[in-house]
């Protein structure tokens, strides 16, 4: 039984990294296509990671490395809690709340290592990253709470099974508003345009990634990939029924990603105060109304 668990864990982690990197490559390819140019090959992210690993990186101290490892571990562990189609390795040990908390390890890890790098630009980037995270957390919390109140449970696996019987929660009457709100904040969670001011290549000099090179850049990209995967998988599991087996799950994932990728390709990048103001205006209002609807209907 333990071997099955270990296999599942390996399978889920590897697959999620692959899916994440593939999606980054796909997004580059799609943006290029929309911009009427060919764009780099789909496997470009994999090539980059291999290249970065072969370079010698510059490190600023033990916490600089530990912070990066800590953040990637956080993301990897979150993936284990998310059901991948039918498989959810750490099913019984804590539901959405644990996922929420584990999701904050990643930004914290990067913040610590960027802080250690003692580069003022990196600190500016970190403060922006945390502000953005706080921006979308406001609505994300309300959405998750409305879901949990609606399904009367904390664990994500129960929510997926409930959706299998009674259909996608996106279409359930009381959850539509929350679903809409979630759609609005998805770009911020995944860190793609219009909320790309942290990961964006142009912002590299004043983002948290300022001091990262070689291995660290590889880890950062992996962490970004996992982040995209987590955002999407949360959306799919909570609102689109999560897929009875891995295949359905991946298709839904891809479709959802395609929708946001189109927005990513054409939208400009917000400044941080525009981003926070935008996140706190409409999505927060929708999420709040959603929560009230759910609260009223299920009391």
């Amino acid at each position: 039984m333990v071997i099955v668990l270990v296999l599942q864990i390996l399978f889920v982690t590897l697959l999620s990294c692959l899916v994440g990197l593939f999606l980054i490559g796909l997004s580059r390819k799609m943006t290029a296509r929309i911009h009427w140019r060919y764009g780099p090959p789909l496997s470009q992210p994999f090539i980059d990671i291999v290249k970065w690993f072969s370079q010698t990186a510059v490190s600023h101290g033990k916490l600089f490395d530990a912070g990066m490892i800590f953040s990637l571990t956080g993301s990897v562990v979150v993936v284990l809690f998310l059901p991948f189609g039918g498989i959810c390795p750490l099913r019984g040990s804590g539901g959405l709340l644990v996922i929420l908390y584990l999701m904050l390890i990643a930004p914290l890890g990067i913040a610590l290592s960027a802080g250690e790098a003692a580069n003022p630009y990196a600190s500016i980037g970190v403060s922006r990253k945390l502000q953005l995270a706080f921006g979308y957390e406001l609505s994300l919390l309300m959405i998750l709470l409305s879901l949990m109140t609606y399904y009367r449970t904390v664990s994500i696996v129960d929510i997926v099974e409930a959706q299998i019987q009674s259909g996608w929660s996106l279409v359930q009457l009381p959850l539509v508003v929350s679903g809409l709100a979630y759609l609005l904040i998805m770009p911020a969670i995944m860190g793609i345009r219009p909320f790309e001011m942290i990961q964006a290549p142009q912002e590299i000099s004043s983002g948290p990634m300022a001091e990262y090179g070689g291995k660290f850049l590889a880890f950062a990209t992996l962490q970004h990939a996992l982040n995209i995967y987590i955002g999407l998988s949360l959306f799919v599991n909570l609102f689109l029924g999560g897929g009875s087996n891995a295949g359905y799950f991946l298709i839904k994932l891809l479709l959802a990603f395609m929708v946001f990728q189109v927005i990513h390709a054409v939208w400009p990048r917000f400044r941080i105060e525009q981003a926070v103001r935008c996140l706190w205006r409409w999505p927060a209002l929708l999420a709040f109304i959603g929560l009230i609807i759910v609260w009223v209907t299920t009391s």
Partner: peptide, 19 residues
């Protein structure tokens, strides 16, 4: 992380300012 090349330590103040 240790699999790759050994990192070189940089002094705290030797920062990259992208030009």
């Amino acid at each position: 992380f240790r699999m790759g090349r050994k990192n070189t330590r940089a002094d705290q103040l030797d920062n990259y300012a992208a030009g």
